[in-house]
């Protein structure tokens, strides 16, 4: 094979000088926020067993870059940080203070569709808080994330906040089968509310519950919007979830202007179990990162600890800087 050695494979790029300096600057600001909040850096291995990605998030496994080692074990380039953090914390929990506060920064690799102009190497920076009191941890992690954005040149960045328990509480009582539930989730994920309404009606879901799903699909705004949604919802799990969002925001008055309650988005992969964050740059109309509570992931690694974290796309941060 005679390939041009000065070229690069499709889906990859070099970042030179100015682009590299911008990212270095952002990473340094994040690092100092993390250090003062008591988070310590870890550098997970760049190579994992492919099976690491079987737990929790199926979508990532399909997109991992895989290869074989000398013993023909299936390996993958790092496709996500969070499972690696879960693996590390599970292995070294006894040597770590509780709760565990870690941060990471580096590349992840995922297959993308050909010819869509997407890269296959992404750069992420994020943090995880494992253990401790969940309500306090949610507050702490959101505060750290917003501090990172504020200190690194994104003072107008906003966060849309939701809670997986709100939707879960509404659909749990419906007695839908797995495939019907997947259909309902997919219609909500596409925001096709007419199709969703008629499907729910076909499935025999009563009008008041269809009304609640409709309420969620419109609920975006401040605490008044959240209170309005709460008033129409009857089940205990959803109400508790809404109350925990109210409490989260009330403990972060310094970020009131930055927080929007947005109950419209659901987590189609069912990865998050509690609070969910989407970080945005309104000025650039770009999503900067995501995060949330994922208590069931640690359990899959054999450590039954609550966990919450966030991850920013360094590529998006670099573009908007």
């Amino acid at each position: 094979m005679n390939r041009d050695i000065v070229g690069l494979p499709a889906g990859y790029r070099d970042l030179l000088f100015r682009d590299a300096e911008v990212r270095r600057g952002i990473e340094n600001e994040f690092a100092s926020v993390f250090a003062s909040a008591g988070f310590r850096e870890i550098i997970p291995s760049a190579v994992e067993y492919l099976d690491l990605y079987t737990r929790g998030n199926q979508g990532i496994r399909e997109r991992a870059m895989r290869f074989l080692d000398r013993e023909d074990n299936l390996l993958a380039l790092r496709a996500d940080f969070t499972p690696a953090v879960a693996r590390i914390v599970t292995a070294h929990l006894r040597d770590m203070p509780s709760p565990v506060r870690v941060w990471y920064s580096g590349p992840v690799f995922r297959k993308t569709d050909r010819h869509r102009g997407q890269y296959q190497e992404f750069s992420q920076i994020g943090a995880e808080l494992i253990g401790g009191n969940p309500a306090g941890a949610d507050c702490e992690i959101l505060d750290v994330a917003l501090n990172c954005l504020s200190k690194s040149g994104f003072p107008d960045a906003s966060v849309h906040v939701n809670h997986a328990g709100i939707f879960r509480g509404i659909v749990n009582g419906l007695g839908l089968g797995a495939s019907e539930l997947a259909e309902v989730r997919s219609a909500i994920d596409r925001k096709d509310m007419r199709a969703l309404g008629s499907r729910l009606e076909e499935l025999g879901v009563k009008g008041s519950v269809r009304g609640q799903v409709g309420t969620l699909s419109r609920c975006v705004g401040d605490s008044r919007a959240l209170a309005a949604a709460a008033s129409s919802i009857e089940n205990e799990e959803s109400r508790e979830a809404i109350a925990s969002l109210e409490s989260l925001a009330s403990h972060l008055p310094q970020w009131r202007e930055r927080i929007t309650f947005d109950l419209t988005e659901i987590d189609e992969m069912e990865y998050y179990t509690g609070v969910m964050f989407t970080f945005l740059s309104p000025a650039h109309s770009v999503e900067l990162g995501r995060g949330g509570r994922y208590d069931s992931l640690m359990r899959e690694f054999g450590t039954d600890l609550p966990a919450v974290g966030f991850s920013f796309s360094m590529d998006s941060l670099g573009e908007c800087a």
């Binding site: 849309h160 975006v220 947005d262 989407t278 945005l280 309104p282 109309s285 770009v286 999503e287």
Partner: peptide, 8 residues
């Protein structure tokens, strides 16, 4: 997906 939030 992002425009739904940023230009809501």
């Amino acid at each position: 997906r992002t425009a739904m939030k940023t230009k809501s």
